[in-house]
Each structure stands twice: as C-alpha cells, then as structure tokens.
Amino acid sequence: MPIIIDHLTHEYETGTAMAHKALEDISLQIPDGQFVGLIGHTGSGKSSLIQHLNGLLKPTDGTVYVDGEDIFDKDYELKKLRSKVGLVFQYPEHQLFEADVFTDVCYGPKNLGLDQKEIELRAYEALKKVGFPDEAFYVSPFDLSGGQKRRVAIAGVLAMKPKVLILDEPTAGLDPKGRDEILELVRQMQRELQMTVILVSHSMEDVANYVDRILVMSKGRIILDGEPAEVFTHREELEEAGLALPQVTYVVQDLQKEGFHLEGSITTVSQAADAIMKEF
C-alpha cells in the first residue's frame, strides 16, 4: 500500500485575516513497509500532514493516493481508508472512553461492522501485540499509567488491522523508560506485521535509533528527506528549523573536528561507542 502525496497544500481559515498555509506544495512517496520518522518543530505542519493521509483533513490543493486510489475523490469511501491507514493521536485521553480496556479496544473493529467473535479476537490480538498484561484487560482505562494508556490507544487502532500505522508523538509526556518501551514496541510491531509506520516526533533522539528514513518539516514544507545519517549531516538546516541533532551526533562531530577519525555513519550511542573503541 504505497502512499503518494501529490503537491499537497492546506490552508487554514481561508479567506479571513488569519489565513495561513499549514502545508505548502508537498510531494513525496512512501513505499510499503518503510519505517519513516516525520520530524518538525511545533507548528511545522506535521500533524496537518498526517491528518491528510487518512482523510481527516481535506487539502486546499493537491491530493493523496493510497494504493493507487485518489482518497479525496468524491466516490472514495473514507471509512474503508481509516481501517487501512491507522492514526494514533498524541493523547490517549482523547480516545479512551469505555468502562474497561478490552471493550475500548473493541470499538474500532466494531465500527468496521465485523461479527462479535472476530471483533473480540482482534481486540485480544491487538492487546497482546502491544504487550498489555492479561490481568488488566478489565481495568478502567482511566486508571492506567501514561505508558499503559498509550499502549491501549495503539491497540485500539491496531485492532482495525491497518497496513499503515501513523503515530503522532507517541512518546510525549512519558518518562525515558516508558519512551524507550513504546518505541521498541513500535519497531517490533513494524517488523512483525510488515507495516508501513510513520512516527511523528519533534525529537531526533527518539527516531534516530529506529527509522529507515527521516522527513524533516519546517514551515509547512519538507526541507530534508533521507536516511538518518545523511539527514544529520545537515546540521545548520536542522538548527535553523529549530531542531537539535541527537546529542551523540554533536559529540561525534566535535570529536571529528578535533582530529579523531571515527568511521562509519554514527547516529546512536552504541554505534558511537563501537567507533570510539575501534579508534583506541
């Protein structure tokens, strides 16, 4: 299910004094099974962009093709699209509403009109996949910790069996341990289910270790697009867009400036450690 974004432009509050473009002429392709990190400062347009991918926002200009079909065509069934492209929003509080976790996860598949058995099977599988403990299935989702809530929210979308999973800042408000757990979980799911995953974040640290490709957004445009190591060579552009490189990259770049020859592309702490060890 490749996604093709074709000259997408979105303008908010068109025709008023407050009109402004959230997205400007964005074109890109995302092939099957890719793990993409979408990075940008607050207000760079990343949330607007992902909401176009499952038809929650309608573009002012341009369009999006999913599986070769124009999703903004009049006859296109958006409801079907939403089971193909799953979108998990930033705050799990925005979607949890049922009295217990299991029933909440059933909500998505139920909306697809499946029969009860299939619904429950999918909910069970999804909760298992996100590593949610069995004994907490019938706990109220409002009594869970932040990290657990997020797992339930992801399971709620996963239960619809999407082929593309988009996560909007899945680590916001989590402590470092919870953050690593969620990111590790996403990577694992991506590999197991062969899904396309788009991970939205404003932190390079978050995505550097996990993704195949980084898209950097600034002021409604894609300014950089490439593999993590390649993107990190554009230090100035990134800083201008209000983004910082992972701290380890700064260390490595400073070391290189001091005359140490560290080899290979280094984006993670363990890679840096290996390279430094090799040097001595």
């Binding site: 909401q51 499952n54 929650l56 409801k79 939403r82 089971s83 799953g86 979108l87 998990v88 929003f89 705050y91 925005h94 979607q95 909500y107 998505g108 909306n111 697809l112 709620g156 979308v157 619809m160």
Partner: peptide, 16 residues
Amino acid sequence: EETDKIMKAQMARGAD
C-alpha cells in the same frame, strides 16, 4: 478544540 481532536481520534477508529 478538544472536541475537534476527540472527534478526529474517534473518526480514525472508524467512528461515524
């Protein structure tokens, strides 16, 4: 704004 976000989150789960 909150309503808008919640609506979207539920629509993403197939709400109608």
